[in-house]
Simulated assay, not measured.
Amino acid sequence: MFSWLKCSRTPAQIMKRRINLWLPLLFSGIVITEIAEDFTAVKGKMKNWKLTKNMHGSQFGGSLFKFTDPIYAMMLQNILGKSYYVWDKEAHIDFVKAAYGEVFLECRLSHAEIDAIKNAAANGEKHLPEFTVRLFDAHNETIAIAKRIVYVRLKREHRP
């Protein structure tokens, strides 16, 4: 009965759908195209819409910056689980060249990086790992480089 209510999607598929329906990304033409089942890799694109362009006809810098916003925090929260606080803490973007078409990103976390983050946060203190995100165009030319700092800490009830 009501077999259509059963959800056979994986957590990564559910997250991809949720993040693609999140209004700040949706209305900026930002689409997450792939999330690895273990959340160690994410790919996305920003569409070439009239509404995402500035007065010069290139992609709006705010939308490019927004594109990088939730990715690493989302990846880490899903990898580390509910025992951790994971927040986006700080960011900086360096615009390299104007983008006149679709823009893409690929974010990856190695198992060594994940282990280092877990080890650094194991004592209950905050850890602030830094990640670099390269935004690029269809010709693989760098459009912008963003640095994201994420706050990671064990929740109080899980601290030693």
Rank of each mutant, 00 (worst) to 15 (best):
F2W: 03
S3M: 09
S3C: 07
W4E: 12
S8E: 01
S8N: 03
K16H: 03
R17I: 08
R17G: 08
N20Q: 05
W22G: 13
W22K: 13
W22Y: 15
L26V: 04
F27A: 15
V31N: 15
V31R: 15
I32E: 09
I32L: 12
A36W: 00
E37P: 04
E37S: 11
D38P: 01
F39P: 00
K43R: 13
K43M: 05
K43F: 02
G44H: 01
G44R: 03
K47D: 12
W49A: 07
K50A: 06
L51C: 08
K53F: 10
M55N: 09
G57D: 06
Q59G: 11
G61P: 04
G61D: 06
G62F: 02
L64A: 08
F65C: 07
F65T: 05
T68K: 01
T68A: 03
D69L: 02
Y72F: 13
Y72G: 05
M74N: 09
M74P: 05
M74F: 06
L80D: 08
K82Y: 11
V86A: 12
E90Y: 08
H92Q: 10
I93T: 14
D94T: 12
K97Y: 02
A98V: 05
Y100I: 01
F104A: 08
F104V: 04
L109C: 07
H111G: 14
A112F: 09
A116Y: 13
A116K: 15
I117A: 15
A120M: 10
A121G: 07
A122N: 13
G124C: 02
G124D: 05
F131H: 01
V133Y: 04
V133K: 06
L135Y: 00
D137M: 09
E141N: 02
A144F: 04
A146F: 07
A146R: 03
I149E: 09
V150E: 09
V150C: 04
V150Y: 04
V152Y: 09
R153L: 05
R156H: 05
R159V: 03
P160M: 10
P160L: 07
